[in-house]
Amino acid sequence: MTLKTLPEIRAGRMPETFAFEADPEAFDRWSSGISAAQAPENTISILDVIGEDIFGEGVTSRRVSAALRRIGDQEVYVDINSPGGNFFEGVAIYNMLRQHSQKVHVRILGLAASAASVIAMAGDDIQIGRAGFLMIHNAWVIALGNRHDMREAADVLEPFDDAMASVYAAQSGVEKAQIAEWMDQEKWFNGDQAVEVGLATSLLPADAVAEGEPKDRTQNSTKKVDTLLAKAGMPRSERRALLGDIKGGTRGAAPHVTHDADDWTAAAEQLITAIRS
């Protein structure tokens, strides 16, 4: 058996001035109800944001490492439906999978965006649903600080983008310069397009994907609000406290009311306007 030789992505320590978050557009286009109709044995499911979010949820490298230890020296299947998230966690998961001693089968069930698309590239074969999407872009972060911090953030991100371009190029056979141009454009590929350019090897059978109701609608809406607040520059600790108050209420506050996604988004946009003013 011959396994692909894929580049390693080296990621140092993340500067304190910025944090990796899921791209708001990717999060908006993510359907969390998509899953596998039937999962093969030794499957690792990546069906959430990458990295631990402010609610303690998400797919982490620690969890994937534990799953790989359990599977041992056997072939592994990786099912993906994720809007991306923490770049460092995505890189760690990618490196673990590329170092696995046996074949890695990746199945993109719905969406593999941003950090999740990097993870997908660790597959020796990559299947994608015809109605699925793969999105590649430059590393996306929330940065805070003065002009020196901003320059440092750009300097830190540049080698990451170059490393990702190398990974996409190695998997697809497309020239690295073309990949870099696609990343600059935040390029979206549907299933057929991903196969055509080599970012996936084949289409998934139609009966391999199941689409159910989105997971906890309120929780998903809250995550979307969290992403919008992050984009506005609010630090994670403050977002955690604020959303905790909104969801659970505080002593003496008005009774808790559950909103739908549109209400949450409108509230977030109003809050962001207030923060910026």
Rank of each mutant, 00 (worst) to 15 (best):
R239P: 05
P159G: 04
M150H: 12
R130V: 14
M96P: 05
P24Q: 11
Q38T: 12
G145N: 09
G58Q: 01
R69G: 00
T43N: 08
G58V: 03
A115S: 15
A232S: 15
A39I: 02
S277D: 13
R63D: 14
G85K: 05
V78S: 09
I50M: 07
T227Q: 09
I126R: 10
D207A: 12
T43E: 07
Q102S: 10
G252K: 03
G248A: 05
L228F: 06
E57S: 12
S82R: 11
T201K: 10
D226L: 09
V91W: 01
N138C: 09
T2C: 04
A112L: 09
V104T: 13
T250N: 10
E152I: 04
K223P: 00
T227W: 01
A206N: 06
F18V: 09
D226T: 09
A39G: 01
E213K: 13
R70G: 03
P24W: 01
D23R: 02
S117Y: 02
Q193H: 06
G198Y: 03
K223M: 14
T17M: 13
R107C: 07
R217C: 03
L243G: 00
R151V: 12
E181R: 15
T222C: 09
G145S: 04
A165K: 04
L242K: 02
L243W: 08
A26P: 02
G198H: 04
R147E: 14
D28S: 13
M1S: 12
S202G: 14
S65V: 01
E25G: 00
R276I: 11
A116V: 09
S114Q: 11
S237H: 14
Q219P: 01
V174F: 07
L97F: 12
A66T: 12
E57W: 07
